[in-house]
């Protein structure tokens, strides 16, 4: 089960308390095929979270349209799972109950009780079922958030830097699990990340964004066969070209820096 997502000419301007405006997204268009694995990379403040929130239905654009399977996105939906950049767990619920939350909220907990332990194992948190969020590490908390989003079996999963707080071993492990899930269920994946290797390893396409105003400046197709090897020649070549792209973008004079 998967969804195609279409974003066309979306603008999102924030006004801060001083009345300054920030052009978080300017004229952003993107078409995501059903079952595609997309990564979004770009420097801090380029509007990655903003874009993800719009797709989730948590926020609305000033202009432009977003649709999923040809239907306009108007509100949040359990069809679109979301993993927040940080936090977002319910501190008063144990790991197990956090993960079971979606089932209970949708009123399907009784029928799917056994799924909870499956998803706990999936993210490797066996033995931590009855721990509270403040008692586990940041990386474990992110894994809880991922399991919690997955248990609803969304058609599209939006992940906002879900592995930022993980060590490289757990991260590689979780990346493989994510791929496995993606292959199994065919969920459309949209992953925001700071890690170029992660983007290349996982995605079909990499969307590169740049800030001020936030826009998509390039889309890289990753035509490497799966399973991919992080040290492969083509892998490294792709990595080099993406890095060069960023250096180029950085090298251009940016008026904001001259103050």
């Amino acid at each position: 089960m998967s969804s195609s997502i279409s974003i066309s000419r979306v603008n999102r301007v924030y006004t801060d308390t001083d009345g300054n405006t920030v052009n978080a997204l300017a004229d952003v268009s993107l078409d995501i095929k059903a079952g595609e694995f997309i990564s979004i990379i770009g420097p801090s403040g380029c509007g990655k979270t903003t874009l993800l929130r719009l797709i989730a239905g948590l926020d609305k654009p000033q202009s432009g349209e977003l649709s999923i399977d040809e239907r306009a996105i108007k509100d949040v939906s359990t069809e679109r799972g979301y993993v927040f950049q940080q936090g977002g767990l319910f501190p008063w619920l144990t790991v197990e109950k956090n993960i079971a939350y979606g089932l209970k909220a949708r009123g399907v907990f009784k029928r799917n009780r056994s799924k909870v332990s499956d998803y706990i194992s999936l993210v490797g948190l066996d033995g931590f079922e009855s721990a509270y969020p403040h008692q586990i590490s940041g990386g474990m908390a992110q894994r809880v958030a991922i399991a919690r989003a997955l248990i609803n079996e969304p058609k599209a999963l939006l992940l906002d830097e879900p592995m930022g707080a993980l060590d490289s071993f757990t991260r590689a492990d979780l990346q493989d699990k994510l791929l496995e899930l993606w292959k199994q269920k065919g969920t459309t994946m949209i992953l925001v990340t700071h890690d170029i290797d992660e983007a290349i390893y996982l995605s079909d396409r990499i969307v590169i964004m740049t800030p001020r105003p936030g826009k998509i400046s390039s889309i890289v197709n990753v035509d490497l066969p799966r399973p991919r090897h992080r040290g492969g020649g083509e892998f490294l070549a792709l990595r080099k070209s993406i890095l060069e792209f960023f250096e180029l973008a950085q090298a251009q004079p940016q008026p904001e820096y001259i103050i």
Binding site: A56, L58, V76, S77, T78, R80, G81, Y82, F84, G87, G88, L89, F90, W92, L93, Y101, G102, A105, R106, R148, A149, N152
Partner: peptide
């Protein structure tokens, strides 16, 4: 926190659920 409501809404909570399962536990 707003994000806690957002998380609950995305996971399928309705208005009542937001009160009973998010706002009240947070206010405890």
């Amino acid at each position: 926190p707003k994000q806690t409501y957002e998380a609950a809404r995305i996971l399928g909570s309705g208005q009542i659920g937001l009160i009973t399962h998010v706002a009240i536990p947070h206010a405890m």
